[in-house]
Lab assay of single mutants.
Amino acid sequence: MSIQHFRVALIPFFAAFCLPVFAHPETLVKVKDAEDQLGARVGYIELDLNSGKILESFRPEERFPMMSTFKVLLCGAVLSRVDAGQEQLGRRIHYSQNDLVEYSPVTEKHLTDGMTVRELCSAAITMSDNTAANLLLTTIGGPKELTAFLHNMGDHVTRLDRWEPELNEAIPNDERDTTMPAAMATTLRKLLTGELLTLASRQQLIDWMEADKVAGPLLRSALPAGWFIADKSGAGERGSRGIIAALGPDGKPSRIVVIYTTGSQATMDERNRQIAEIGASLIKHW
């Protein structure tokens, strides 16, 4: 067993022997301040990774656009098919120029040779490549099948209805392509620590998230040296922004954090800054 596999296998073990965790309302004060600064709703939840206990939450059962955070769930569904012998990570998928959609920095470079399922998941999570996500959605049967996968996990809230990039439209009061912070946090925890996926697939999923290259201005910008984070960000229309993450000190994750916002007129930089400040408060009061 590799060191990384050992780390993920012992996530519940280490967490069980940690000192009790206590909620700190100071972080919620910052979440509410972010709402004021952005002029928009902000949803927040913080779960203990081992027990699933909610440590703090704000608007945990209000719907927010998922945006690209759905790509972690998508690759979880792909990995479940791999575990069941219905898919192979090494299978190569070929596609054409007509398949390319807006923001496809990886797939646009491989029109000639195609990409493997493993490479597509890596591109979808680490670079948020939209064509990679659409190609992977095709392998599982489309958005409705991802929703069905989530329902089978016990998540009857999260739903995907459309493809990239239309799913980022974020129309107010439109339930399409949305989740709730509580539902997303619980589902992410199941994917990373539950028995739904094999140990190898859980490790692969967290490795992809740990290698995320496009979430630097968010929670990662607030992390002290030595902290662990595996995350996936999302951005959408109407001032929408979000991030889902597993993080913790001492090089291992111990909490799940989900943050979503929508309806702001603020710039992307300002949305990023507010999420980073929430992260800084979380870490300060850990």
Rank of each mutant, 00 (worst) to 15 (best):
E26F: 15
L28D: 04
L28Q: 14
K30L: 08
K32G: 13
E35Y: 02
E35R: 04
D36H: 09
D36F: 14
L38D: 15
A40N: 06
E46W: 04
L47I: 14
L49W: 13
G52P: 04
I54P: 15
L55K: 13
L55F: 07
F58N: 14
E61I: 10
P65H: 04
P65K: 04
M66C: 07
M67D: 11
F70G: 15
V72C: 07
V72Y: 02
V72R: 02
L73R: 03
L74T: 12
G76C: 11
L79E: 03
S80T: 11
R81G: 07
V82E: 08
D83R: 04
A84F: 10
Q86C: 06
Q86N: 14
G90C: 07
G90P: 12
R91A: 14
R92V: 10
I93Q: 05
Q97V: 12
N98C: 06
L100V: 12
L100P: 03
P105F: 08
T107F: 02
E108I: 15
L111K: 07
T116N: 15
E119R: 05
A123M: 04
A124M: 15
A124C: 15
I125Y: 00
T126Y: 04
M127H: 08
D129L: 01
T131M: 15
A132Q: 01
N134A: 02
L135C: 06
L136C: 04
T138S: 13
I140H: 04
E145K: 14
L146S: 02
A148E: 07
F149P: 01
H151Q: 10
M153W: 07
D155E: 04
V157P: 03
T158C: 03
T158E: 01
R159Y: 07
R159G: 05
D161W: 02
R162I: 00
W163P: 07
W163D: 09
P165T: 06
L167N: 07
N168C: 13
E169H: 12
N173Y: 13
D177F: 01
T178W: 02
T178Y: 02
P181T: 05
A185W: 00
T187L: 07
T187V: 08
L188S: 05
L192W: 06
T193D: 10
E195M: 15
T198L: 10
T198D: 08
L199W: 09
S201K: 10
R202A: 08
Q203H: 05
Q204V: 12
L205A: 03
L205V: 10
I206N: 06
D207G: 11
D207N: 13
W208P: 01
W208L: 14
E210I: 15
D212G: 13
K213D: 03
K213A: 05
P217E: 10
S221G: 13
S221P: 14
A222D: 13
A222M: 06
F228E: 04
F228H: 06
S233N: 00
S233Y: 01
G234T: 01
G234R: 00
G234D: 02
R238C: 11
R238A: 11
G242A: 07
G242F: 00
I243C: 10
I243F: 10
I243G: 01
I244W: 00
A246V: 09
G248Y: 01
P249E: 06
D250E: 09
G251N: 08
I256A: 13
I256E: 00
V257S: 04
V258H: 00
I259L: 11
Y260N: 03
G263Q: 11
S264Y: 05
S264T: 12
Q265D: 13
A266I: 06
M268L: 11
M268V: 11
D269R: 12
R271L: 11
R273V: 11
R273F: 10
A276G: 11
G279E: 03
A280G: 11
L282C: 08
I283Q: 12
H285K: 10
